Amino acid sequence: MTPHRTSQTMKPATAAKKLEVYLKATPAEFQEGTVSRDELDALRSDPPAWLRDLRRNGPHPRSVVAARLGVSISGLARGGVTEALTTQEIEELRAENPEWLQRERATQAEVQKEALRLKEKNATPAKPARPTSRKRP
Rank of each mutant, 00 (worst) to 15 (best):
M1Y: 10
M1G: 08
T2S: 13
P3S: 15
P3N: 11
P3K: 15
R5D: 11
T6S: 04
T6G: 11
S7N: 13
T9N: 13
A13V: 03
A13I: 11
T14W: 12
A15T: 05
A15H: 10
A15K: 04
A15D: 08
A15E: 08
A16Y: 13
A16Q: 02
L19Q: 05
Y22S: 06
Y22K: 01
Y22P: 07
L23R: 12
K24Y: 02
A25S: 01
T26D: 03
T26L: 00
P27F: 05
P27S: 06
P27C: 02
A28M: 13
A28W: 07
E29L: 13
F30S: 08
Q31D: 05
E32T: 14
E32D: 10
V35N: 08
R37K: 15
L40K: 00
D41S: 05
A42T: 07
A42W: 05
L43F: 05
R44D: 02
R44S: 05
S45R: 13
S45V: 09
D46F: 02
P47C: 15
P48Y: 01
W50R: 12
W50E: 00
W50T: 15
L51S: 07
L51F: 09
D53C: 14
D53Y: 02
D53R: 15
L54F: 08
N57D: 10
G58Y: 09
P59T: 03
H60G: 08
P61I: 00
R62C: 02
R62I: 07
V64F: 03
V64D: 02
V64I: 15
V65L: 14
A66K: 13
A66S: 01
A67P: 01
L69K: 14
L69D: 12
G70P: 14
S72R: 04
I73P: 10
S74I: 06
L76S: 11
L76R: 09
A77L: 04
G80C: 06
G80Y: 02
V81C: 10
V81I: 15
T82L: 06
T82G: 05
E83W: 07
E83N: 14
A84R: 10
L85D: 09
Q88P: 06
E91W: 04
E92W: 07
L93E: 11
R94I: 09
A95Y: 03
A95D: 06
E96L: 10
P98C: 14
P98M: 10
E99R: 15
W100M: 08
E104K: 04
E104L: 10
A106V: 14
A106Q: 14
T107F: 14
T107G: 12
T107C: 06
Q108R: 00
Q108F: 11
Q108H: 09
A109I: 14
E110H: 06
V111W: 11
V111S: 02
Q112H: 13
K113S: 04
A115H: 00
R117V: 05
R117L: 03
R117H: 04
L118T: 03
N122G: 06
A123H: 11
A123D: 07
A123W: 06
T124R: 00
A126K: 15
K127Y: 05
T132D: 13
T132E: 08
R134H: 08
K135S: 00
K135T: 11
R136I: 06
R136T: 00
P137G: 08
